[in-house]
């Protein structure tokens, strides 16, 4: 009996770890809603764009630090083929709007109302960011935000933009 329980627990633990979205895996598709106009948006691979997907919340201080960086990415790489998608995980839309007044975003901000997107990506921390190439493969993941890592991210974006699908 104890052995069966141990095997069951091990299988459960293994299945949980296999759900994690990691580098080299396909980005999971999910449905989102745009914060500014409440339009539905389907997050999926696009052959003409490299995606920078960032999960954030208004209560998370490093998320606020990442906004100027994402604005820079949008300014410098949008024309070259990068789409910055910030997915908000707040439980209150009011908190989101107050945050966006304080930290304006010139990129697309979505909300994941039913938390399905966060579950599909199996988020481990806030903020979490993912770089997705034109084939829909996750090429880079980042937990938290550190200004020291921005050069590396920019270099990788340039590399992914240069790649052909």
């Amino acid at each position: 009996m104890i052995l069966r329980l141990l095997i069951f627990s091990a299988a459960l633990a293994l299945s949980t770890s296999l759900l994690a979205t990691e580098i080299g895996e396909k980005m999971p598709d999910c449905s989102l809603i745009k914060v500014n106009d409440a339009q539905h948006f389907k997050l999926q691979k696009t052959h003409d764009k490299v995606l920078y997907v960032d999960f954030w919340a208004s209560w998370c201080p490093p998320c606020a630090q990442s906004f100027p960086f994402m604005n820079e990415l949008n300014r410098d790489f949008k024309a070259k083929g990068l789409q910055v998608i910030a997915i908000n995980m707040d439980q209150s839309l009011e908190d989101t709007k107050t945050f966006l007044t304080k930290y304006p975003a010139n990129f697309t901000v979505m909300t994941d109302i039913n938390e399905q997107c966060a579950k599909s990506f199996d988020l481990k921390a806030m903020p979490s960011s993912y770089l997705v190439d034109r084939n829909g493969v996750i090429r880079y993941t980042h937990l938290g935000f550190r200004t020291d890592d921005t050069k590396e991210i920019r270099a990788l974006i340039e590399q992914l933009i240069a790649e052909q699908p």
């Binding site: 999960f55 919340a57 998370c60 995980m89 707040d90 439980q91 938390e115 988020l123 979490s128």
Partner: peptide, 11 residues
């Protein structure tokens, strides 16, 4: 508590 559900804990 999932990482994205820690808004209250972060206060």
């Amino acid at each position: 508590v999932a990482p994205w559900q820690r808004g209250t804990l972060a206060k």
